[in-house]
Design a protein around this nucleic acid. Structure first.
Length: 695
RNA sequence: GGCGCGGUAGCUCAGGUGGUUAGAGCGUUGGAUUCAUAACCCAAAGGUCGGGGGUUCAACUCCCCCCCGCGCUACCA
């Protein structure tokens, strides 16, 4: 890593449609911040870049819901997030936003550069159009039944319930969220980025060239590349976003996924208007993206391909993506309000920034999903931060005040004239070796993005310090050999100072507190520490210490109870919200003839089996009074084949047959969708003969 | 269904080109101690390394099958 001259670190641009929660922090911002702090301490040239991602349909949707303009909407969340980051102490060099003019210029220029190379594909295709509103419906404006999990309110680009990405045409019963009407397909022109043309290059660069990436990252990229890439549309019909900078592109904007990563570049421009290029175009700059796993493909495949297409830009050297964080055993959920919001945490637990940093780093989802629980938070704070770290610092301070009135005692070597002193010396030698190793291990872990381990080694310094005190027992020696006590405490203070230095990337507030107690900014020591990656000298003999202060306080039961209560309370709110809007808007009116076209009948299921190779389809044999027919139905997640047999079902008898998974389905079973997305059979209350018509 | 990542002590995690009694921290239990925020220090208990087969003198580590978690991907007329 020494052959890079500078670093560009990016943390995923948070989407400006809601506040930040601890999952965001643990996934990207905290590891990025820790790394950025570490690099700066080493004296590296660092650009730590982030900003709000403010385009896309979810923003327009959200603003509509709140009855404000998109601009006002993103202003609100941008300010909220920016402040939360600041208050929490994430040390971005710049926190920008994609609605800035400089970003508009940069993104448009980026588009033009690739456009001028004639790389884009221009294509007209059918998209859903809301005739009543007279607008094309972006993916997010269309809801319908998710083909994957049957969630009745899946969006056109993704089902929030099962997380599957979708395209609007996959939705069953698509509806416009603007008018509630069923949209129609209408042609519109869009530009596509030819990802497929970069497949060969990506395989070379990524699969061959970056075997050093984390296995979860590398594995997912390989999976994508093996499946083959396709051109991706990079424009949308929308009035909120960056206009496509072409004459024949009225009403078209850049797709948010295209413009967002460019936001890293424009933010750098905003930060260093005259000097930004070296952070993006100099091969001696190391570009690192900190993201959560949901962003892997965009940062490892799509954005690099974009950068490559534009030319001149450097490519990410590493993308240390984290997995997800759960909360009390369940997924974090914005809509269900199952989350610890950063701004709420900072308000409820003021002065406890380090505590959250410590706990989130200690459970950092580096290799698999992790779980945050308040009980665990309390335990880690109390038994590790308070008992081991804070207590060690405190006892050294108190001892020094007690025996030496707050003046740093002897820094001379202790002459080993008797057995007792020889023992102290040997304990010192052992401690010193252990400490050096811990510092080295910590630095190595930091270099490799293993923050959990790095922080563990940091804490190890206190463990070794505690042992050193317990073994040398200065409070006993004080009765007989004050010279020895002075040497012991001098070294203990050295450990305390080195702990402060080691804490700086992880626990900046505590580090500052120790500096204050040591009455020193540790400026010179700091430089040596990160250069040598070993224990360094801290303060000279005779130096006056500040007053002893407790570094961290225990978390009381009542404090975490308040938090867990808050989580429980959130859930009813959620249900209320769901009840608020459980019923879909009415479809547009039809005439009797429309209804009469449908031939709805009751049939009896005579046989049922799971479709091979499908986890949603059941293959049903239905007695329709006409010799029976085969109907495939996507209900395998709701009914087992066994319980279907003998049931009476309602089905559309004159629907055109459709082949699925190699089998023809001759009709459609009617199901009621409960508000939780569960499907329930629609059956006559009393049994009727098979083939009875419904009218 | 296909693909990817993961499944190691109560909890959070290490580990290994296969090789003596599988490691750490926290928690628990016992002991010691008092400088310290009932903290620290020592010790112990605690694991058939997801399950089953196979390769091997030897597998937790390699191969095959299966189960579970998470994610990506396909099928709900």
């Amino acid at each position: 890593m020494t052959n890079f001259k500078r670093y560009t670190l990016t943390a995923a641009l948070p989407y400006a449609n809601g506040p930040l929660h601890i999952g965001h922090i643990a996934g990207a911002y905290l590891p990025a911040d820790t790394y950025a702090r570490y690099l700066r301490l080493r004296g590296e040239d660092v650009a730590f870049i982030c900003g709000s991602d403010e385009h896309g349909v979810a923003i327009t949707l959200g603003s509509r819901k709140e009855g404000v303009t998109p601009r006002a909407f993103v202003d609100k969340y941008h300010q909220l997030m920016k402040k939360a980051f600041e208050d929490f102490g994430i040390s971005f060099d710049i926190y920008s936003r994609t609605s800035n003019p400089v970003h508009y210029e940069t993104a448009q220029e980026f588009f033009r550069t690739i456009y001028d190379k004639d790389l884009f594909i221009e294509e007209t295709s059918d998209q859903y159009y809301d005739e009543q509103e007279g607008i094309f419906l972006a993916d997010r404006y269309i809801i319908g039944t998710c083909p994957n999990c049957s969630n009745p309110n899946a969006y056109g680009d993704q089902c929030e319930k099962c997380g599957t990405s979708l395209s609007p045409k996959q939705l069953i019963n698509p509806r416009s969220t603007v008018s509630g009407n069923t949209p129609v397909l209408k042609p519109t022109k869009h530009w596509y980025f030819p990802l497929d043309k970069f497949e060969g290059w990506l395989k070379e660069w990524l699969i061959e060239g970056h075997k050093d990436w984390k296995t979860n990252v590398y594995g997912q990229c390989k999976s994508w590349l093996d499946q083959g890439l396709q051109p991706r549309s990079i424009t949308r019909d929308l009035d909120w976003g960056i206009p496509v900078p072409l004459p024949d592109a009225n009403g078209k904007v850049l797709y948010v996924w295209f413009d967002a990563p460019i936001g890293y570049i424009s933010a750098t421009k905003e930060w260093k208007p005259n000097d930004w290029q070296k952070y993006w175009k100099d091969p001696e700059t190391r570009l690192i993206h900190f993201i959560g796993k949901d962003n892997i493909v965009f940062h490892c495949i799509i954005f690099p391909a974009m950068l490559k297409a534009a030319g001149e830009y450097i490519l990410p050297d590493n993308v240390p993506a984290n997995e997800f964080l759960n909360l009390e055993g369940e997924k974090l959920s914005t809509s269900r309000n199952h989350a610890v919001w950063l701004h709420e945490y900072l308000q409820d637990l003021p002065g406890r920034r380090d505590e959250l940093r410590y706990v989130l780093t200690s459970i950092s989802p580096e290799t698999k999903d992790a779980d945050f629980t308040w009980k665990d938070y309390q335990q880690k704070v109390n038994s590790e931060m308070v008992s081991i770290l804070g207590n060690f610092v405190n006892r050294v301070m108190v001892l020094t005040w007690k025996y030496f009135d707050g003046k740093v005692p002897s820094e001379h070597e202790l002459p080993g004239t008797d057995d007792r002193r020889k023992r102290v010396l040997s304990l010192y030698t052992q401690a010193h070796a252990d400490l050096d190793k811990a510092v080295k291990d910590m630095a190595d872990a930091l270099k490799n993005f293993r923050f959990r381990e790095a922080q563990f080694q940091m804490l190890n310094l206190s463990r070794i310090g505690n042992k050193f005190l317990a073994d040398t027992e200065p409070w006993k020696l004080a009765k007989e050999d004050m010279e020895a006590v002075g040497c012991i405490l001098n070294y203990a203070l050295t450990i305390v100072g080195n702990i402060a230095l080691a804490m700086e990337p992880f626990l900046p507030d505590g580090a500052a507190s120790i500096c204050k107690q040591l009455n020193s900014d540790l400026k010179q020591s700091r430089k040596n520490f990160w250069e040598k990656e070993a224990m360094v000298h801290i303060v000279p003999q005779g130096h006056s210490l500040g007053k002893a202060e407790l570094l961290y306080r225990n978390v009381e039961d009542t404090e975490i109870e308040k938090q867990t209560e808050r989580l429980k309370k959130h859930q009813p709110v959620v249900q209320a919200a769901a009840i608020d809007n459980p019923v879909k808007p009415l479809k547009s009116e039809i005439v009797f003839d429309d209804f009469a076209k449908l031939d709805i009948r009751i049939g009896t299921v005579t046989a049922a089996e799971k479709m091979e190779k499908s986890n949603k389809l059941l293959k049903l044999r239905v007695d329709d009074g006409l010799g029976g027919r085969t109907i495939l139905s996507g209900i395998a997640l709701h009914y087992t084949p066994e319980e279907m047999i003998g049931k009476q079902v309602t089905f559309i008898a004159n629907l055109a047959p459709r082949k699925m998974m190699g089998t023809e389905s001759q009709g459609m079973i009617l199901m009621a969708e409960d508000k939780d997305g569960k499907l329930k059979l629609v059956s006559p209350i009393n049994e009727v003969s098979s083939g009875s018509q419904v009218s």
